[in-house]
Design a protein around this nucleic acid. Structure first.
Lengths: 234, 234
DNA sequence: AAGTGGTCTAGACCACGAA
DNA sequence: TCGTGGTCTAGACCACTTG
């Protein structure tokens, strides 16, 4: 079931990566035609492999001249990660404490808090920990038609994993909006912080492969424990 | 000099876009083989066109089944934009007021503020406006070997455009780091804000095609006028 | 079983850079 | 001019979904 697209290019990239790492920055790597012959694959596959290496900044390519070892860079590409995955990347143990869960029945004057989510919907309020430190406070909305019996599930782990494994709803893309805020006193208390500290407020809309909105969430993250790093291209 | 890669796929995508816009969400679009025949191009080109449409959320594809019209989404992909470009996207007129420019000669105990930039380097402190409102305060460092005579240039416009047109240094990728902060009183004064408001602090490293660091900057942006929206994928 | 998208190939021609 | 990467083709076979 491995979902490895572009098998040859991917494997080829992994073979080339250590070779590249040993060369000095701006040294040329073999030409595409040479690599194609050496590995017995088509030039198209070589080019896809080089494209992968280019994406994470291992090489750069100059039309008419060649491909070269890129000088070292640190920042990673931005990928969709659940909170749990993010913590694991940082080497911290993720945990969640459920503060409140309930089902919101059809409401006449519905709040915009869960606009786009079909009612009735579950509202899940949780505190998120990394190595027992409170890292963020979050409220998630998930339509009950998507995940019936959600209340019976264990909600102390990754919601994304739960949705995927128990309901076949994999979230493959998300729209997010970051706003810098002063963390209000109520949230500060819940997160055991001194009030008035800066943080991020994040609104997230999660979508499945079919572009249907599956999850909606609002998150407050403490600024002293969260940076937001990314690489952006022209 | 148009730098349009994938000419056929790109043009094909633009032709298909309006057709797709007229169909209902989740309606199937023609198969790849049908499109290839209809437009007299190879299936590979069709697939690249569909990939482009997929990237900006116009369609989604299901292996073994087909491609379908995606339900509407709002958020744009994140692209590298200069401040000036960002303002234009928002329909605001960009402007810069130069607060301070000078050349930093080789220093013995150099500050980490411009780590990675070759000395001597220019330090450019500017206030950035959108429609005459101060939007952000920024300090940029640019090595003098890259842009000699920078002091003689007009610095009230886009630095990126200036670097590209006058010095042949196009910045094609950047690493950024966002931190939520309370805007300090000195910066608040410069931006004519009441102190203690939340904002973003952004560190940016700009690179040319060869992966060489061309620009380094630190920016403070007011939180009440800046959101950070993006789409992220698995 | 038939039809769809997913991967890969071999080969052609174009556009650019360096000598 | 020659060698490089950039684009495109026609056709093959695989993997998946649906009837």
């Amino acid at each position: 079931m491995a979902k490895e697209e572009f098998l040859k290019p991917y494997r080829l990239a992994e073979i080339l990566r250590p070779e590249i790492a040993e060369s000095d920055p701006h040294e040329p790597i073999p030409t595409e035609r040479q690599l194609a012959e050496r590995f017995g694959v088509s030039r198209v596959s070589v080019r896809q492999a080089l494209a992968l290496l280019n994406e994470d900044g291992a090489i750069y390519t100059v039309h008419g001249s060649g491909s070269f070892v890129a000088p070292p860079r640190v920042t990673k590409q931005m990928k969709l990660l659940s909170f749990s995955q993010e913590m694991e990347v940082r080497g911290l143990k993720p945990k969640a404490k459920v503060l409140n869960v309930h089902l919101i029945e059809s409401s006449t004057n519905r709040s915009d808090d869960w606009a786009g989510i079909t009612e009735p919907t579950y509202r899940i309020e949780r505190l998120r920990y990394g190595n027992d430190d409170p890292m963020s406070w979050e409220v998630s909305y998930i339509a009950s038609e998507i995940a019936p019996d959600l209340l019976k599930q264990d909600l102390t782990g990754s919601l994304y994993t739960l949705l995927k494994n128990n309901y076949g709803q994999e979230i493959v893309s998300a729209d997010e909006q970051l706003t810098p805020v002063l963390i209000d006193s109520a949230t500060s208390t819940k997160m055991k912080l001194t009030p008035g500290k800066p943080g991020f407020e994040i609104h997230r809309h999660g979508f499945n492969v079919r572009g249907q909105q599956v999850e909606l969430s609002r998150t407050i993250r403490r600024g002293d424990r969260w940076d937001f790093k990314y690489t952006v291209r022209a």
